[in-house]
Nucleic acid binder design. Structure first.
Length: 878
DNA sequence: GCAAGGTC
């Protein structure tokens, strides 16, 4: 193929240029036609959105008549052949092998016709699609259409990283060839998504929809229980957090607080250890402090602190911040942002980029905002060199090479047709932009540390010296508190020294911003689609969003995740997507072939689908916990008891049986049980129906696993693949039995133990002998040495304990609880833990993998459910 | 009627 240099001065050739969207066609045409004789003409194409721009341009001395049009994203869709498109036309399993084809859907036919008509009269085609994998794939879709109309087209690809003059001119003078490998990677994704999505969606919809009374849907006959590699992991995040909250057992902890008042004011000092979970340990230390309450200032640190403005605005940040500041849904935010963009007020709203190009004329953009009645004066101050307020924005390190960060492109003090949400989003974009080019806020921070009887406490004070960007970015604040001046070595008697209790709280439900953060981190969806996946959860009745924009699963969402989880698959976790992303990258780099990846992945998923179908009883069981059975069931449940009515016409495998509706009161048996059966034996203690109430061991096991309806059943405790939470349940169980950690009697907790010495704030205590460094063990929690100290309090006279030298660490362990020679292996959990229940607990699964993003993940192969390998190397893959 | 990815 000839390069752009055709010797120059020859006949003018016609060049068809195609961009991914109308805005890019317009922008690039504007740049290329500037300073060219003849200017730029615009005419309509067959699609009302996709205009055709015409101008003259010279590419490497070759005079060209440029025609510049666009598509609107993908021109084609992937679909099964007609005979597989109807839901009942085939077994969903066949969708893994059914032929697929790409076609131009009805609403894109007008664009197709424009391309065909224009291509016929051109000699060259230059593809200006976005420079990412999807863009490369769209380029090949455009090419397919254009080549069918004109076989002799000379094909070129323009690579550009920003819509700025220099980039665009350089790009058109250094044209390259389209990259087939990038496009192949997208073909792989499309085919896998379609086959997995369609097969699982049809399977679970036909299996469950008619089998249960789904009371939330007005017309449950048309309900679709969809499965998708993005929507399910998104649901998984919601369910996982919900289960975490349900599994949370409040745990009591203890902390020592100190206050000091004098003429200059007052200060509250916090215990450097944070808190301890063992009352005895806490009260021992507390008594030592009371014994010698004189505080000595051990450190005074003063430093200047800066609070930096945010990075330039990407799509995800816009969605997160609009949710946080205005409680707007990500879907609504994008709808409004799209409208503002279409009307020229803000830049392209779908961007991953969070840094401005050096060439961007930021000052002119700021200048435009100078007339605004509210933030105009700030914009003017920003441009005044005397103010010293300007700062070149710092980037966040992301660049999609296609679009700049979201910024204002046209001044407005508000338009009459704008809704409140339009005002909000525009204001956020402008204020965010002004904040980005402003200096950080400056504060003077003072940290004071004091020592009381060997224990450290600290207090912080902050005075804001200059608000800078905070003056315009009203959405953020920086709290300041004033404390008196202290000097090193100063001594004082605290006004109060109290031993206070608290309880651990569960984490909150996921907010929309949290959910977007989870998806972003796990690589679920793209900046342009994340809000769609979230909306899909709501549309499918899988999740609900409360007034605080926090998500919780519906019964349906929870049941589906529970069903797959009980099968042993982690299809509701992000690993499948991570693996696909990894494979797609390999295809785009040429290290794996398209056909090889497709074959392997689909084979894995087909095996998974077969297993899931074989274990569909698990889905039934999970659904039965939440929903009543419907009398119009056509599904095939395997593990039901009752009279056989007929063979199931759908699966042709199972019998259809008559069954009473399941009771929601359940007893979860331990996961380690391989079999359970009902016998005719009668328990001599409890009579018939005994499920272990008279057997201590069984009672304990049943207790661990939980009983009752879903609200009281502990899902983690059923071995739901979360060893941390499982052990939480066990701990919670021992707590529920009411045994005191101090005297081991039941009926009261340790803090109410009558056998303990007085735990009042004025408890008498004796001298404490601190043996610095004489004997130490490495801290189990942070690794620093732990000193051996002797308690001489009323309740623990002469008892020795190790306490971590690092004051930020709350490690504390009685010496007599350590066994000889194994001190360093002894868990700190007998006496203290960091950060509340569950954290830092050992992972007992013994299996860990590394995901595509490099982060360790644990769990089982989602194909076979076995631990020890990931699906990539699953032996079932064949 | 199904996915996710573009985009208006």
């Amino acid at each position: 193929m000839a390069s752009g240099g055709n010797g120059g001065g020859g006949r003018v050739i016609r060049v068809l240029n195609v961009a991914e969207k109308p805005s890019v066609a317009k922008a690039v045409s504007g740049i290329l036609s500037r300073n060219q004789g003849g200017g730029m003409r615009v005419r309509d194409g067959r699609s009302r959105y996709n205009k055709i721009f015409e101008f003259n341009y010279t590419i490497r001395n070759q005079p060209c008549q440029m025609l510049f049009t666009s598509v609107t994203g993908h021109l084609m869709e992937l679909e099964f052949d007609d005979r597989f498109r109807k839901w009942h036309s085939c077994d969903p399993l066949h969708l893994y092998d059914a032929p697929v084809r790409k076609y131009v859907p009805q609403d894109k036919l007008d664009i197709k016709r424009t391309l065909e008509e224009e291509a016929r009269g051109c000699q060259w085609i230059i593809l200006w699609l976005d420079c990412d994998r999807e863009g490369e794939n769209i380029a090949f879709e455009v090419l397919e259409v254009c080549r069918q109309a004109n076989h002799n087209l000379n094909v070129w690809r323009a690579r550009f990283s920003a819509l700025i003059d220099r980039e665009i001119h350089q790009s058109v003078q250094t044209l390259v060839q389209p990259n087939q490998l990038f496009s192949d990677a997208v073909d792989v994704r499309q085919e896998i998504d379609l086959r997995i999505g369609a097969s699982f969606t049809r399977f679970q919809t036909m299996l469950l929809r008619d089998a249960f009374v789904l009371d939330f849907a007005t017309d449950d006959r048309n309900l679709v229980l969809s499965y998708g590699p993005c929507q399910f992991p998104t649901l998984g995040f919601v369910v996982e957090r919900y289960w975490e909250i349900q599994a949370h057992e409040p745990e009591e902890f203890w902390t020592i607080n100190c206050t000091h008042n004098f003429d200059e004011g007052s200060a509250t000092f916090n215990w450097m250890r944070g808190h301890l979970f063992d009352y005895t340990c806490a009260v021992t230390i507390y008594e030592m402090c009371i014994q010698e309450p004189t505080a000595t200032v051990s450190k005074v640190k003063q430093q200047e602190k800066l609070k930096y403005p945010p990075h330039p605005l990407s799509t995800i940040e816009l969605e997160k911040r609009a949710s946080r500041y205005f409680r707007m849904s990500s879907e609504q935010t994008m709808k409004v942002a799209e409208d503002l963009y279409q009307n020229g007020f803000i830049s392209y709203p779908r961007t991953e980029t969070d840094c401005f190009s050096e060439k961007t004329d930021l000052r002119t953009m700021v200048q435009e905002q100078g007339g605004h009645p509210v933030w105009g004066s700030y914009a003017q101050r920003l441009l005044d060199p005397q103010s010293g307020l300007w700062r070149n924005p710092s980037g966040g390190g992301h660049d999609d090479k296609a679009h700049p960060p979201i910024h204002p492109t046209k001044f407005s003090a508000g338009e009459s047709r704008w809704s409140q949400d339009h005002h909000r989003v525009y204001e956020l974009v402008v204020r965010h932009f002004l904040a980005c080019v402003s200096k950080p806020a400056v504060g003077a921070e003072t940290t004071v540390e004091i020592d009381i009887a060997g224990e450290s406490f600290f207090a912080c004070g902050r005075v804001i010296l200059a608000k800078n960007y905070l003056d315009v970015y009203r959405f953020e604040s920086w709290g300041g508190s004033v404390i008196p001046t202290y000097t090193f070595g100063q001594q004082f008697i605290p006004r109060s020294l109290t031993l206070d209790s608290g309880v651990t709280r569960p984490p909150p439900l996921l907010s929309e911003a949290d959910l977007l953060g989870c998806m972003d981190k796990a690589g679920i969806g793209t900046d342009a689609t994340m809000h769609d996946h979230i909306k899909k959860l709501l549309d499918r009745f899988y999740a609900i969003k409360d007034s605080s924009t926090r998500f919780s699963p519906t019964k349906l969402g929870e049941a589906l995740v529970m069903g797959y989880d009980d099968m042993g698959y982690e299809l509701w976790k992000p690993y499948l997507r991570a693996m696909m992303e990894c494979d797609m990258k390999a295809v785009s780099m040429g290290t794996k072939r398209k056909t090889e990846v497709l074959e392997t992945c689909l084979q894995q998923m087909k095996a998974c689908f077969l297993d899931a179908r074989a274990n569909k009883g698990k889905l039934f069981e999970a659904m039965a916990i939440f929903f009543e059975r419907s009398n119009r069931s056509s599904g095939g449940e395997q593990q039901v008891v009752g009279d056989v009515v007929r063979r199931c016409g759908l699966c042709l495998e199972s019998d259809m049986v008559l069954r009473q509706k399941p009771c929601r009161n359940v007893v979860w048996l331990p996961g380690s049980l391989s079999e359970a059966s009902v016998t005719e034996n009668t328990c001599t203690s409890c009579g018939p129906g005994c499920i272990g109430g008279c057997d201590d061991i069984l009672r304990q096991l049943v207790g661990i696993c939980g009983t009752g309806s879903r609200s009281s059943s502990n899902t983690f405790g059923r071995g739901r693949g979360n060893p941390t939470a499982s052990s939480s349940a066990q701990r919670g169980n021992s707590r529920a039995q009411g045994s005191c950690a101090y005297c081991r009697q039941t009926g009261h907790l340790s803090n109410d133990c009558p056998s303990q010495a007085s735990r009042s704030c004025t408890a008498r205590s004796q001298e404490v002998d601190l043996q610095n460094g004489e004997s130490s063990i490495p801290c189990n929690s942070c690794g620093a040495p732990c000193n051996l100290r002797t308690a001489n309090t009323a309740s623990n006279r002469g008892r020795k304990f190790f306490s971590c030298q690092s004051r930020e660490c709350n490690f504390f362990v009685w010496e007599d609880t350590l066994s000889g020679g194994e001190r360093t292996n002894t868990s700190a959990s007998t006496s203290s833990r960091r950060g509340g229940r569950g954290q830092g607990a050992p992972n007992t699964s013994g299996v860990s993998f590394v995901s595509a993003t490099g982060e360790p993940i644990t769990g089982r192969c989602f194909i076979c459910g076995d631990p020890g390998h990931f699906a990539n190397v699953c032996p079932r893959r064949g």
